[in-house]
Amino acid sequence: MASLPKRIIKETERLITDPVPGITAEPHDDNLRYFEVTVEGPVGSPYENGIFQLELYLPDDYPMEAPKVRFLTKIYHPNIDRLGRICLDVLKTNWSPALQIRTVLLSIQALLASPNPNDPLANDVAEDWIKDEEAAKQTAKKWSKLYATPKQ
């Protein structure tokens, strides 16, 4: 049975009435703790023009515990692995209950704008990135076109 604290209701309301530019997040009909998320690739990054699907889940302990977020769209990024799991401090050790869904999604968007191959989750991608950044960015661009282009 899902409990829905006031804070979650509020956050949801604001996400819908006052969305963050380039980001959408909508709760699932059956489970108000489960959100379908899209993030636009930041301008100037290899992910530009891509629209990435993510899923976000608020655990029972939220906001004492961080939301669980995962990319559903395939993406070539040193801090995101094949399963779409994200290596981002605010989702792990640096989670704080003062953060919220908006801030998490903004951080993810920022991570797309500035990948950090020195703290990798996807080791092979990180290696490529360090070896030849330009080539890696080209691959990222290609993947974005291939997997993250909205169908009409």
Partner: peptide, 26 residues
């Protein structure tokens, strides 16, 4: 509206100073 998002960023930015290298400039 802008200052609202600013607030989000500000919390992130304040926290960021305490963190390991993660996201760079927000």
């Amino acid at each position: 509206r802008i200052s609202d998002i600013e607030e989000d960023f500000q919390i992130l930015a304040t926290n960021e100073r305490k963190r390991l290298p993660g996201i760079k400039k927000i």
